[in-house]
Simulated scan of single mutants.
Amino acid sequence: MVKIQRYETTNNDFGGSTQDWVDKFEGKGVIDMLSGNEVLAADTLGRASSHILILFTIIDVKRGDRVIHNNDRYRVTYVDNPMNFNRHLEISLIWEANL
């Protein structure tokens, strides 16, 4: 299972606000590590990536969101809907930490 979270600001009852990671999606997805050449190619585009996530559910994912999978945490660096066919999303990730 893959969990996608977004850092959001929510207002509280006292006129202030809090910021925290909010779950946006939980479902099936496949994460694969990029090879050395693919990492270099992604870096030339200004988006360093170490992994790619394939989702067959079309959802709202943005750069800066985070992905939790198998006790690992990743940051979203780029989201692609190949040829805008809405068949799947290819989400570039960079590994951040073990949980």
Score class of each variant (00 low, 15 high):
Tyr78Arg: 06
Glu90Cys: 15
Tyr78His: 05
Ile91Leu: 03
Asp60Ala: 11
Leu99Ile: 14
Ile94Gln: 05
Gly27Arg: 11
Asn86Leu: 08
Thr57Ser: 12
Thr18Pro: 04
Val22Met: 11
His69Lys: 08
Val67Gly: 00
Asp80His: 06
Ile31His: 02
Lys62Cys: 08
Gly36Thr: 14
Leu55Gln: 02
Asp65Cys: 02
Ala42Glu: 06
Thr10Trp: 05
Ala42Trp: 01
Asp80Ser: 07
Gly16Thr: 06
Arg73Met: 05
Met33Glu: 13
Ile68His: 08
Phe14Gln: 04
Ile52Pro: 07
Glu26Tyr: 05
Phe25Gly: 11
Ala42Tyr: 02
Leu34Cys: 04
Asp72Gln: 07
Asp13His: 07
Asp60Pro: 04
Ile54Leu: 08
Phe85Pro: 01
Tyr7Leu: 10
Leu89Pro: 15
Tyr7Lys: 15
Ala41Gly: 06
Thr9Leu: 03
Asp32Asn: 14
Ile94Phe: 06
Asp23Arg: 09
Leu40Pro: 00
Tyr74Gln: 01
Asp23Ala: 13
Leu55His: 01
Ile54Met: 08
Glu8Ala: 12
Thr18Asn: 14
Val67Glu: 00
Asp23Gly: 04
Asp80Glu: 12
Lys24Leu: 15
Val67Asn: 00
Ser17Glu: 11
Val22Gln: 10
Arg73Gln: 08
Ile68Arg: 04
Val76Ile: 08
Leu89Gln: 14
Arg47Tyr: 13
Gly64Phe: 07
Gly16Asp: 10
Gly15Trp: 03
Thr18Glu: 14
Tyr74Thr: 00
His69Tyr: 12
Lys62Asn: 13
Tyr7Ile: 00
Ala42Thr: 03
Arg63Thr: 08
Asp72Ala: 12
Val30Tyr: 15
Gly64Met: 12
Gly29Arg: 04
Phe85Thr: 12
Gln19Ala: 13
Leu53Ala: 02
Ala48Asn: 10
Thr44Arg: 13
Gly64Asp: 10
Ile58Ser: 12
Thr9Met: 08
Asn81Glu: 08
Glu8Phe: 01
Arg47Gly: 03
Phe85Arg: 14
Asp80Asn: 15
Asn37Cys: 04
Asn71Ala: 11
Lys28Trp: 09
Leu55Lys: 03
Leu93Ala: 01
Thr77Ile: 05
His88Arg: 11
Val30Pro: 00
Ser17Trp: 11
Glu96Pro: 00
Tyr7Cys: 03
Arg75Glu: 06
Val2Asn: 00
Glu26His: 07
Asn70Arg: 15
Ser17His: 09
Arg63Tyr: 00
Leu89Asn: 08
Thr57Glu: 15
Arg63Asp: 06
Leu53Glu: 02
Gly27Leu: 14
Ile54Arg: 09
Val79Ser: 03
Lys3Val: 13
Met33Gly: 01
Val2Leu: 01
Glu90Gly: 13
Asn81Lys: 06
Arg87Lys: 09
Asp43Asn: 10
Asp23Gln: 15
Leu40Val: 12
Arg87Glu: 10
Trp95Phe: 15
Pro82Arg: 02
Asp20Met: 13
Ile91His: 01
Ile91Glu: 02
Met83Leu: 14
Val76Tyr: 00
Ile94Ala: 02
Thr77Trp: 02
Asp72Met: 05
Thr57Trp: 06
Glu8Gly: 04
Gly16Trp: 07
Ile31Lys: 03
Asp32Leu: 11
Ile58Asp: 10
